Simulated scan of single mutants.
Amino acid sequence: MRKKVDQVNQNPAAIDGHAALQVVDAMHKIMHLYRTQQHRSLRDAQHDLAHMEIKVLGFFARHPGGSPSDLVAHSGRDKAQVARLIRGLRERGLLEAEADAADRRSTRVTLSAAGLELHTALHSHDGELAEAAMAGLSEGECAMLAALLGRVRANLEAGQG
């Protein structure tokens, strides 16, 4: 049985005639559908990970030996939240941490063997999900969409100042 997309706080009349709002609404709906399917696959595979835990695994997969401070800077999350996420993933055997040889006050974090295996499975599924999402689009269309979304992101980042 397919679950309907949540309609809470959605007012189609409010965005009619506003191209920019329609685009942002479409991006929101796409990410909601993507994350819903991502979480469904996690449940089906019996992985009990929250969205941020997946992000933490991905960060340390891309930055092995990174520090919690590196993750704070990258994610924009506060130190306490990052510390809780790392601690929880270490307790589950998905991350390993050791003191930095050059600075014993600093911790270096890597994926454990189990964390690497899980991240590889998640990354594989994400690739399949991305391929399904882009089905029917040419490489050129995908490149154009990525460039346009990059401009949207840059606009938003410029407005944060």
Rank of each mutant, 00 (worst) to 15 (best):
K55H: 07
F59G: 01
F60V: 02
D48M: 07
A61S: 11
S124C: 01
S112K: 03
A50D: 09
L71I: 02
Y34K: 05
E96M: 07
E98Q: 14
F60K: 02
S41E: 13
G65K: 08
V56W: 02
R108L: 15
E98C: 03
R77A: 07
G66Q: 08
D103R: 14
H32A: 11
L42D: 04
G88R: 04
A121D: 07
G115Q: 02
S124F: 03
L94A: 01
S75Y: 05
L94Q: 01
P64D: 11
H51R: 06
V109F: 05
G88F: 00
I30L: 09
R77D: 03
S124Q: 06
T120M: 10
G115F: 10
F60C: 04
R35P: 00
L33E: 08
H39E: 09
H47M: 12
A121K: 11
D103H: 12
A101H: 14
K55Q: 13
R90T: 12
A45F: 06
S67H: 04
R104N: 12
D103G: 08
G76W: 03
H51V: 07
R87V: 03
I54G: 07
H63F: 15
T107L: 12
S75R: 04
I86P: 00
R108K: 15
G58P: 04
A83W: 03
D48K: 11
S69W: 06
D78V: 08
L57V: 00
V82D: 05
S75H: 04
E91L: 04
G76N: 08
A97H: 06
L111V: 09
R62I: 02
E117I: 05
A101L: 13
E98H: 07
D44I: 14
L57H: 02
Q38D: 13
H51G: 03
A83Q: 14
A50Q: 11
A99F: 08
S124I: 01
G58S: 10
L116Y: 09
L118R: 12
T36E: 11
L94E: 00
H119D: 13
R40H: 08
L118I: 04
T36F: 08
V56N: 06
E117H: 15
Q37V: 05
M31R: 10
R43D: 11
H32G: 04
L42Y: 10
V82Y: 04
E91K: 11
M52L: 12
F60G: 01
L95G: 00
A121S: 13
A121R: 12
E117T: 15
T107Q: 14
M52N: 11
L95P: 00
D100M: 14
S75P: 07
R87S: 13
L33V: 10
Q81H: 08
A114K: 15
S112L: 08
I30E: 05
S69N: 13
L89A: 01
I54V: 14
